[in-house]
Design a protein around this nucleic acid. Sequence first.
DNA 1: CGCCAGATTGACT
DNA 2: GTCAATCTGGCGG
Length: 191
Amino acid sequence: MTRTLGRGFYERDPADVARGLLGKTLVRKLGSERLEGVIVETEAYYGEEDPASRAFKGLKSYNEVMWGEPGRLFIYNVHRYWMLNFVAHEPGGVGGVLIRALEPTLGVEAMLAHRPVEKLTELTGGPGKLSVALAVDRGLNGLKATDENCPVHVLQGGSEPEVASSHRVGVTQDLPEKLRFYVKGSRFVSR
DNA sequence: CGCCAGATTGACT
DNA sequence: GTCAATCTGGCGG
């Protein structure tokens, strides 16, 4: 019997949560369909002290969930794509973890219906790609992923992969810390 | 209201 | 390598 990750998992420093999510299984329930993939790449974001964070400009209606309960979904738009994040921070803090890449394990046909591609590594190897494949959009923002009935949640257990880190991708102003984490050697990690 | 920029992607020189 | 698509919010008139 697999269980979903609870609030305690997400109520830590975002970098620890980002590392901890690697190797775990992300579940997307779509009606009667069930899509799954193993998380292979994440990035941590902090609050108003992090110039790359959506929380940098202070509390706004679109980013308010970053101040809220750890384990909720935080979804926002960049260009024409949706970014899937989990709210993660220590008690009283602000932050989140961006899911950047997955290795598809279940429901590949349904994912391909959302996002037709030749190679499987092109299906979920990037934050925008993965959201299209899993049909993630704004409508999921703020949902409690700690609830196993949530259409998006993460399972306990999984492997403990070898983790590598680097600076975050695509940000104009990064912090000195390396806040991007990925499974070493995975073909599904973006770029 | 109009214009700019962004944690992206894909098509093209 | 460059560049634009297309959505959302920030900001100035």
